[in-house]
């Protein structure tokens, strides 16, 4: 009897503060967000109960579906660049090359930069009046370009800046996954006369896939939730071309002060996260099994 009680008090003391904090600052706020999303609001004041009107106005409008479309394309195109690039650089960095540490350090650096700094650096590089890319564009095509004034160019720009900032994560995960592949596998392949290319396609890549698939789910969630990079780079423009659901949630709340509608966006984002997270947890479990 004494044995089982031995853990009771320490458990409460060790776990209690964390659980309390999480309840107060994550769990309760989610409930409040849901409740607020069912009410009309003026600035920070919560008015009459209106049921699911906010949700209807989001999902029943072309603007709402445009935001969803923007989120999906932002996530998909970012992944399309980041995943192959990250795997390629990771595999190359794992080879026995000269100055490997130097290469690795430089190539991973964007990861420690914030979305704010990433956005500011690219905003300046792509500046249409004084930037080098605008100059080269002009020299190559003879026409001028403003990356923040055309819908297509702005969409490409945010994806590109995001890829720059986040591809090092795939590099790191690839490197980590490659270290645990036993050297004997490659030796055996060599003895059997497998070419480098077939070794890559038949041994390296299949062994990388479990690690990569987990991180791909994780990054999808991350990209879907991303606000800062887009907000600082384009503020969602031009003509809402780069307004994803998350950017919309933030701007509705804190640029336009529609707390109720913003909460409805927040709650939709929360639900999407729950669905994606369950995929993630399933992938993690699959990996451990």
């Amino acid at each position: 009897m004494k044995k089982s009680n031995e853990f009771l008090l320490p458990s409460i003391l060790f776990l209690g503060p964390t659980l309390l904090l999480v309840t107060l600052f994550i769990l309760i706020p989610i409930v409040i967000a849901f409740r607020t999303s069912l009410h009309a609001t003026t600035y920070a004041n919560i008015d009459a109960f209106i049921g699911f009107e906010h949700y209807k106005s989001i999902l029943g409008s072309s603007d709402g579906w445009m935001d969803i479309f923007n989120s999906v394309t932002y996530v998909m195109f970012s992944l399309t660049i980041v995943v192959p690039l990250g795997i390629l650089v990771g595999v190359l960095l794992n080879r026995k090359i000269r100055a490997r540490t130097l290469f690795r350090t430089i190539l991973i650096i964007p990861w420690v930069l914030s979305q704010t700094v990433t956005a500011l650096l690219w905003k300046w590089v792509l500046n249409s009046s004084f930037g080098p890319i605008a100059l080269w564009w002009q020299q190559l095509t003879g026409s001028t370009i403003d990356f923040f004034n055309s819908e297509i160019a702005a969409r490409v720009t945010v994806v590109f800046a995001n890829a720059w900032n986040t591809y090092p994560i795939i590099v790191i995960i690839t490197l980590a996954a490659l270290q645990i592949i036993p050297e004997e596998l490659f030796e055996a392949a060599k003895v059997d006369g497998a070419s480098r290319r077939s070794t890559f396609w038949h041994i390296t890549l299949p062994l990388l896939i479990p690690a990569i698939s987990t991180i791909v789910i994780m990054q999808s969630i991350e990209y879907f939730n991303m606000v800062t990079l887009i907000y600082v780079l384009t503020a969602g423009g031009p003509f809402n071309a780069t307004t994803t659901l998350s950017v919309r949630a933030f701007r509705t709340g804190f640029d336009f002060w529609h707390i109720g509608l913003g909460s409805a966006f927040s709650f939709i984002i929360f639900m999407v996260n729950i669905i994606f997270s369950s995929f993630y947890i399933r992938a993690l479990k699959g990996k451990n099994a």
Binding site: L19, A33, S246, S263, S266, F270
Partner: peptide, 26 residues
Amino acid sequence: NIMFALLMMGMVPIVALLIPLYLLSV
């Protein structure tokens, strides 16, 4: 269950929490 709950809470994005946390802090 506690571990699962913690993982789920850890994955709630900040952008979904800003408005309620703002209301609470005011």
